[in-house]
Design a protein around this nucleic acid. Sequence first.
DNA 1: AGGTATCGAAACCCACGGTAGCGAAAAACG
DNA 2: CGTTTTTCGCTACCGTGGGTTTCGATACCT
Lengths: 191, 191
Amino acid sequence: MASAISTRPPGRPRTGVHAAVFAATLRTVHELGYARATVERIATAAGVAKTTIYRRWPSKGDLIVDCLLDAFGPASLEGASRAEIMSSAIHWIAAKIGEPGVGDAFAGVFSDAVSDPALREILSVRLQDPYRLALQDALGEPEDRVRFFTDVVVGTLLHRMGMTGAPMADTDVAALVGMVLPALQRGSHPF
Amino acid sequence: MASAISTRPPGRPRTGVHAAVFAATLRTVHELGYARATVERIATAAGVAKTTIYRRWPSKGDLIVDCLLDAFGPASLEGASRAEIMSSAIHWIAAKIGEPGVGDAFAGVFSDAVSDPALREILSVRLQDPYRLALQDALGEPEDRVRFFTDVVVGTLLHRMGMTGAPMADTDVAALVGMVLPALQRGSHPF
DNA sequence: AGGTATCGAAACCCACGGTAGCGAAAAACG
DNA sequence: CGTTTTTCGCTACCGTGGGTTTCGATACCT
């Protein structure tokens, strides 16, 4: 296969624009809300043409998911015991969702995904699955249980965000931890 | 104030169309999903003109909220103990969200509300507040606690619905109950 | 310089929420 | 019956936003 990789293709190279677009996305979503954060406005805020955005991301949903992946970064999942791991994971995702723009963007794509199976697939596979698999491994819990805990934690945080417009306060996050941990310890038979 | 009520106003009376529109709304949302359930399509499915819909409901959000109010009906909130009341409430809302069209409509309007403060107000005041107040009364719990439980229960159910496209299975609803009840019993200090 | 691929700008298409204007139909009243 | 009043369905329309197309300009490599 010829010289394969590492040979720079001919023509004008792409300008590195991901970082600027991600920053502009979060900033715009934070200032205007998800619905008013149009691709046009995001492009303008990033100092880039709308067409350039669509050359890199096939849809607004893909852009947001990539932006969230960049904002979340790798999961930490620290802790000596299963309880500590779960606790730190909840605090971690709550803090991330609390960052300006991140929560709005997350709730926004999730909303769009409800009636868009393709976007739902992207959201599920690219954003949630990696963290879910890491959690399964760290906790030694089966897939369904981790999915259940994910529904509870992320669902609660997003519902609060969606209804009040503000991220969940620390005391409530603590209450969430205090509610999930016993269920984790009890095992898979809460009856 | 003259003859006040009970005097029939002149002119052509309105055709009773609410029931047909509500049914058409749930059916259309169930078959096509929230995003494809346009007002135009709902009107056609109800055998009514789009303008007639907008003569009765100021926006699509109001229509959906009214439709959900009609579908939910009054809360039951039966049970001898606080635990039984909470348990029956969770099963009740889970069953309602599981009805064809209801969950999709709920998740859809919730999604729209994320970036639409006016719609969020409608959703909060007309749909959630009545049930929340009834729960506060029945459980004897303060507002913040009931809001927290609402976030957990509704958030979890909607997150599951949004990610999988299907309502939560009974065993998972039971697990949800098994997670919430101890927290309810523990009182407001889960530390 | 020549080849190639990207960039920005502008025009465009389409779907959808929501509005305006109109003639027709349905009731009440004389 | 005709007049009045209100609603009906229909069609045309507007604004916005996601996404595409086209085209000249520009940046890189050989």
